[in-house]
Amino acid sequence: MRGLFGVSAQFRARVEAQREPLYRLAYSWCRDAALADDVAQEAMLRALDRGAQLADEKRLKAWLCAILANCLKDHYRRARPLEPLDEDMPAQGETPEAASASGQLAARVRAEIGRLPLGQCQVVTLVDLEGFSYAEVGEILELPIGTVMSRLCRAREALRARLIEFAAGQENKLRSIR
């Protein structure tokens, strides 16, 4: 049995302050706004429940992100109990074709990130959205640093192949309008 005794008001405020980055990460991983809300809230509840386990409060954000990753993993295990969790499975959400049709670069980028295998998606968003070092990402996802680097490399290769030309095309469109 675990309790919340001993968790300071300052700690609770710091957990609450991470609500937006946690949601942003969860959304980038699952591409489902409602699920991202659920998972972020679940992570915050778990964090309050386990606050005493955090030895170094400077590591709060990384610790919360690790909890978030586990919450999403748990969700997928509950949703697909008979299937092994596959970090190579693509995230879900809007198709790149639909995003292209909308003509919005941000939507297209989100869609392409959603096409990445979950393991690659998590690494690239932890580095690019939240600015974690490779070592921190390794701790968050419980991966060797070499795996972090190789996943990041594959993720960016895939994004480069799919997005650089699209981005250049968008820029040319803007020039022709001007």
């Binding site: 609500r19 949601y23 972020a40 670069l105 941000a106």
Partner: peptide
């Protein structure tokens, strides 16, 4: 591009 794609993502 990755960073900018989620600039508006909020709960």
């Amino acid at each position: 591009m990755v960073k900018g794609a989620y600039a508006d993502a909020r709960p």
